[in-house]
Write a protein that binds this DNA or RNA. Structure first.
Lengths: 178, 178
DNA sequence: TATTTATGTCAACTATATTGACATATTTCC
DNA sequence: GGAAATATGTCAATATAGTTGACATAAATA
């Protein structure tokens, strides 16, 4: 006697305290959108022998010149061992330099070189092109609402100085810098 | 003689054919938003001994009952070897069942069990809660503009039947199902 | 019947992360 | 000034999620 597999049946026609219906379409659109969003940089990074991890490190170092290792670890939420492998490659190949902190010489402050800047701008350009295309397709002034929506998706973290400034900045104004 | 590290200087004050300015804030907001968006399910999955890969498989199988293995591979863009490991666990532990295709018995059509449904609804509930919160905070209404933006971020793929139907559906109407 | 297709499996390897232990230099506290 | 705490780095073992390549089986199709 084959036991029937336990498939879910029809949804009950009605229910008093039903949980809010899942927003299936937005869940899926976010998945595909983010995959393509990071896919463009991935293709370029591959030619350099780098991966996504290198992109993230280079991005945050470029955007926060003089970033402390501790703050980079906080924003990436990885361990120093994991960062180590990636950062060492970026330093060895001249994309990032380290300088001792002026007041606390234990700190190794991180800076992108112009070689690093050139790569990070190339990657950001790809992502920016995709975003601009999508903003255009979405119609007038979607940017402001989109920023508010994305900020609302993000959990605060008092122990992450980089994230803190990002949430403050985007909370303030349109900040289309330069 | 210490060679100065090759740091990027000030941006040139003006330039005729400058590339469009990177949308730094949106690039970063997307990164953090997506990380927290998948972070909620991650915590739950961990208690089940599962990872993100299991979530993706279970999600698309639940959303597309009777999905062919080939179509699942297409939408996930992974190899059958990579899928194999994850799918085997989900089947062994009773979250997914396989049935031979009625017309083509080589096919193994995939279905979520009610155990699988219960897990996938729990995970979707977490993500839905976060999205609703953010939509509310953004004053974005039902998210019509957001849907158009996200669709604009996604590349078409004729060889992916699952993606094709998603882009069609979300392109049509508000599709708040049920 | 011969070939193609849909799926599965074995094996080796890569990228990115983890935990735990320990090392070094520097700063801070008493 | 010495002890303790801090910032960073390194070695080793392990986990997760992916890859390529080779080969196997059953069922459909030419």
């Amino acid at each position: 006697m084959g036991q029937s597999p336990d498939l879910p049946g029809e949804r009950p026609p009605f229910s008093a305290a039903a949980p809010a219906a899942p927003l299936w379409d937005l869940i899926e659109l976010l998945f595909f959108a983010y995959r393509d969003f990071v896919g463009d940089p991935d293709h370029v990074l591959e030619k350099f022998g780098f991966g996504r991890a290198h992109h993230r490190v280079l991005h945050f170092v470029y955007r926060n010149p003089g970033l402390k290792v501790a703050d980079l670890l906080a924003v990436l939420r990885i361990t120093k061992q994991s960062l180590g492998r990636v950062l060492k490659q970026l330093v060895d190949e001249g994309y990032i330099v380290q300088r001792a902190g002026p007041s606390d010489r234990r700190q190794r402050l991180l800076f992108a070189t112009s070689k690093g800047e050139s790569l990070v701008l190339r990657l950001a350009g790809l992502q920016t092109d995709r975003i601009r295309r999508a903003l255009g397709a979405a119609g007038a002034g979607e940017g402001a609402q989109l920023r508010r929506f994305l900020r609302g998706m993000i959990d605060q973290d008092e122990d992450d100085p980089v994230l803190k400034t990002i949430l403050q900045a985007s909370g303030t104004a349109e900040t289309e810098e330069r």
